[in-house]
Nucleic acid binder design. Sequence first.
RNA 1: GGUCCCGUAGCUCAGCUGGAUAGAGCAACUGCCUUCUAAGCAGUAGGUCUUUGGUUCGAAUCCAAACGGGAUCACCA
Length: 633
Amino acid sequence: MENKIKGLLLEHSENLFGTQINENIIQFQLTRKDVEGDFTLVVFPFSKLMKCAPTDAANKIGAFLQNQIEEIEKFEAINGFLNLSLKDSFWFETLKSIRQTPNYGYAPENSKPTIMVEYSSPNTNKPLHLGHLRNNFLGYSVAEILKANGHKVIKTQVINDRGIHICKSMLAWEKFSPINDKGERETPSNTGLKGDKLVGKYYVEFDKHFNAEAKSIIEQWNSKNFDGFPKQIIEEFLKFESAKIGKDEKAIQAIEDKIKELAKNQTSLLKEAKEMLIKWEARDPQIYLLWTTMNNWVYEGFESTYKKMGVDFDNLYYESETFLLGKDIVLKGLKDGIFYKKDDGSVWIDLTADGLDEKLVLRSDGTAVYMTQDIGTAIDRFNDYPDLNGMVYTVGNEQDYHFKVLFLILKKLGYKWADNCFHLSYGMVDLPSGKMKSREGTVVDADDLIDEVIEKAAEMTNERGHLEGMSEDAKNELFYQIGLGGLKYYLLKVDPKKRMMFNPEESVDLTGNTGPFIQYAFARINSLIKKANGFSRNFSGNYSISNEEKEIIKILQNFPSVINEAASSYSPALIANYAYELVKSYNHFYQSVKILTEENEDIKNTRLALSEQVANTIHLCLKPLGIESPEKM
RNA sequence: GGUCCCGUAGCUCAGCUGGAUAGAGCAACUGCCUUCUAAGCAGUAGGUCUUUGGUUCGAAUCCAAACGGGAUCACCA
């Protein structure tokens, strides 16, 4: 309809305004609720052209449009706003056409280019926590949203399975794990611990001993005992010590941190870990076996958590296989003059002309850094998938700068697809008590949280749900769907780029703007349709439409553009908020009109059809959010 | 210090490609289940949209500055 009007105005532009008008001054909006009308044309821009008062201009355009378009019932000009009312039949026809479109709002499958979405990308030393949940739900959801928009999507994650930190937990396990009477160290099977939790435990264990050792080294230095330390280190320590004199508290703290760093580097534990890394890189069979064993424990643990979260991946990239990539690209870029070499042999790129800094891409010893690896991996992926068109990296906003640099480098290297790379940056999740800090034990574990949320859902559903005739399995499935649905909705309804507050109590809420609220509306419609026991989908809509019905149709009509917008801005929050708006409006309708008890068959059928369409749309909203739509709850 | 992100009701968030009197939820208070699922609905109360300037017929929305919060600026990943 809006396009129709646009076309007419453009076509008769000379006549109406005495000049050809620019398309983008034609602006529509929904009519304010307290004013009569369905949608509104903003006429301020025209009144200038027409050289008359806004109201006169509105009246003139209104008369013209009513004359031209049959569906316009009437119009009213208020100030610079032309409020147009459409005939009831228009709305019924709109509903019919929406109903006739399968998956209304979605684009045809695989009609758009392939996009890879990377998310999760955990470190194998740390069990998944609340921050990962936001990451995973976001990444999964954006992937599904892109699918709904017709893109072919490859979901992937990078597994950070190598490096010094991995050696730390391996070493700690070897050194500190108790040995049972069968002569075994702790394993997932003999402790009953989840693999990722067990490995995480030893990573923490390493840190404890490591810090203790560093502390005792500092104490030794403070008592002027420097036995067994290289001269260079001692000199550095003394330099720091003398620098402390006369400084304020903050500066002293900074210096002490540096001293701590220095001491840490002297610990036997770190030295051993480094040796282990060297052995690993040389593929020492014993170390490799340990590494594979412990990593497999972690993968099993992660696998079960992912399953609970309801996320999946099409392909995995292991850093142990990709960490050497990128070096030859850098060397080639060096030859082409994109990078330059410093005297010490390190390779850099100068991005100061683009408002960024200089960035290291290869160490002086020729080894790769994070950036090198990321350059290589990106290129590698485009080789793996020849039809790949773009990539989305779901990574926290602390890496905004890194990705800015990465994409710029790729562009400078001449990869055209660099423009189609997007950093899906999201803010940190805070707790009411403040930031999550592993050191202070305030990290919210993903498994624990999910269990908690399901338990709470079970409790509430047992209290008020409609569970009669459900098997235990079906009930448990329902509790899971509600609990997890609530959690996902809670994390996804907020604009991704914003830092958000996670309130554990609110996250299990069932009332208000929550996942269960949306799910409940779906279940309720489902029960309605079931009770209707078959109804004629061929309604004529030959009655005076109510405002409630019209409102819902307007919202339904808007669904395709919401799906579209959610993809182009990579924001599941838009869909969550849309679903909420739709449900609120439907609930209002549900409580104010009769549906099953309506005597007029045609009205009843129309309202059932409308309800059914709302349920369909709710489902189409929840699906890309990764939230289930239970039929009964 | 440079760069980037954020600042809307007591709390958590929508609204931001400029448009009419700024919206929800939670918390507080009042009503509505012998009628389709009350996890619902209707209502009351709650605002200097951080501040100050600018652009405009019109600014929560755009621009600039200030203030406040956060991130980042490693031969870490």
